[in-house]
Amino acid sequence: MEHYSMNLTLKVWKQKNATAEGNFETYQVKDISSEMSFLEMFDVLNEQLIHEGKDPIAFDHDCREGICGMCSMYINGRPHGPWHGTTTCQLHMRAFKDGDTIVVEPWRANAFPVVKDLVVDRSAFDRVIQSGGYISVNTGVSVDGNTIPIERENADKAFAAAACIGCGACVAACKNSSAMLFVSAKVSHLALLPQGDVERKNRVLNMVAQADKEGFGSCTFTEACEAVCPKEISITNISRLNSEYLKAGLSADKAH
């Protein structure tokens, strides 16, 4: 595909701080290369804003190679933009045409309050993980990786679930602001492996309870989460979470 450069109109959410009202600001960017990443285009814009003495746009980013889960832009009505299975940092400007108008918003959910501009506070996910997304291991000499045999099929499913980078696109896309794809990926990852067996019941009960407490909604299987997930986490993980929750909830014999 041929390289080309483009001029774009950007409508970006600007919000001074968590309590400020916030509004859309319109920016023009010129000579953007089709080979730039979306975040590099934002770097160009921010440099331009700094030169003009204006406030640059705050946005989250870290690894810029699609594995950290920090970038979190809602671009033209879709988390992480128009490409399937792609984080914002891996979205390239060849997804757009010269003269396009691009609307960029932060993730919207009560549980993800805006900190500034496009930056949202996703510490709710950290608290969900703290409530049960771990396993107990003996410290000391590390054991051989193949000591515990694991069925190949389960290993593959666990690995696919573990690919979740916790970016929050599932919450951003869900009409219920449900975090179930995230929670279920973490529950499935450990439920499918023998190492996860010790905390199995408490894990799913505690993680769902924490997600509820954070203000995430319930899953109604609209499948929007699966469609926008940059790591293509399967919605079947939510069925597995439900199954785990039913087994744990019906058999657990202590107050939670």
Binding site: G77, R78, V103, R108, N110, F216, G217, F221, E223, A224
Partner: peptide, 30 residues
Amino acid sequence: ALEFQNRSNRKKGYAVKMGSKGSAWYRKSM
């Protein structure tokens, strides 16, 4: 009750809606 609770989890909505991208209309219109 679930419909209203779930809706209230996003007090501020999006300027550009997702529409039917990735989720069929009837799945979101129960």
